[in-house]
Design a protein around this nucleic acid. Structure first.
Lengths: 219, 219
DNA sequence: CCCCGCTGTCACCAATCGGTGAGTAGCGGG
DNA sequence: CCCGCTACTCACCGATTGGTGACAGCGGGG
């Protein structure tokens, strides 16, 4: 039914032969990792499983067990890959920014983070995963993500000291929480607490409100 | 277990007879709804399904199809039930609050919402569901939830007008986003952006930061 | 040369999923 | 008392899940 006659293939039957995977473990490993990241980005963690990844990678799931030790190992590999996230979005002039006040800096960082997350489906999916499940799997991934975020913030901050009299760590955490939830809600439902988050005009309004909040505490 | 043995048989087989559900459609419907809400609250949306609900309700899944038209209808019933959420947390003195400024009001509302969500696992799970999936099912539930939230805010606000010059709707949405994400992250992983969210002392720090932010914009 | 190891494929497992059709059991009205 | 309506249960369906053991084919080292 599937296979034509056993003939000397000249017809599309040859396709099966040409599709044949070259024996290259490294390439296969990379294909699996890419498939996993793509699948997580596009479909979310709901239907993220061995079978789905293998299907997308175009290989047998057995290879995932062999090369990554199962889904857990694969997820860990994704986490390790998140290290590139911070590298990829550190502008060269990070150290030479002409930011005068801590408020200037935090406003800038908030807007940068908002934009970065808005355009990074993988990070968004991981974030949603984090707040939805509490397995060891997602905990490891979460750790990698938050470490990357912390490193990014640290690099961007440089040596500027926060003002005294405010618990900057707590305030920043709340601001980041707001950013993350805005992005999640916007991507998922297109709105948050009655505020539409679809058009770029919508996002400008949200960004302005965010700026006001940050400026309100840090001046 | 509940009922003593009225009968002749003393063997464990009697248990099955004593457990026997009384034929009461209304009670069964309520049991199913309660099971659904409890399951969603405790386990999250991951393993929320016909089989799990029926198992917890102690009845056959067929009844869920019959009485609620399947999971969708059941979810909708949960959504309808969220209307009580508002009623349950409107303090009597809502109209008679001696709040002078819009800032006073929003600070108070923010802290109230933070606490309410912190202690409401069902709302939290729904919230997490909203940012993780975008099916028709969750969209309806989301709508019910946000409508309840909007109504609550409206009731609490009374007739106090927001100050001019600020996009209060956007600012409030951002604040609510922060609250919701703090609660989600706290419940799931016990922290958010490096800020621990476990002890009540942790939450006080977060609440203080939240107050500062609100006060910063609304004075 | 042959053989062994590595890469990749396939077949199969038990468990669970959502969903449906048919059958049982008890209560209430005639 | 019995009959019918209704609440309820059971058995089964195909599909999909995570997981494993056995096998095929190529290639390099003895």
């Amino acid at each position: 039914m599937l296979n034509e006659a056993v003939n000397l293939e000249s017809s599309p039957g040859a396709q099966a032969a040409s599709d044949r995977r070259v024996r290259d473990r490294g390439a296969t490993e990379r294909a699996i990792l890419a498939a996993a990241k793509g699948l997580l980005s596009e479909e979310g963690f709901q239907n993220f499983g061995i079978n789905a990844v293998a299907r997308r990678a175009g290989c047998d799931k057995q290879l995932i067990y062999r090369y990554y030790g199962g889904l857990d190992g694969l997820v860990e590999a994704i986490g390790a890959d998140l290290g590139t996230w911070v590298r990829d979005r550190i502008p060269e002039d990070a150290g030479g920014m002409f930011l005068l006040t801590y408020g200037d800096l935090m406003e800038r960082l908030a807007l940068l983070l908002l934009d970065a997350l808005k355009n990074d489906p993988l990070m968004r999916r991981i974030l949603a995963w984090e707040v939805s499940e509490n397995t060891e799997q997602v905990r490891r991934l979460s750790e990698a993500r938050s470490k990357a975020l912390a490193l990014w913030l640290d690099r961007m901050r440089g040596s500027l000291a926060p003002p005294k009299g405010v618990d900057a760590a707590a305030v920043n955490a709340v601001v980041i929480a707001a950013i993350q939830h805005l992005v999640l809600a916007g991507a998922a439902g297109g709105q948050c607490a009655g505020l539409s988050l679809k058009t770029s005009k919508d996002w400008e309004k949200a960004a302005l409100a965010l700026k006001r909040l940050v400026r309100g505490v840090y001046g």
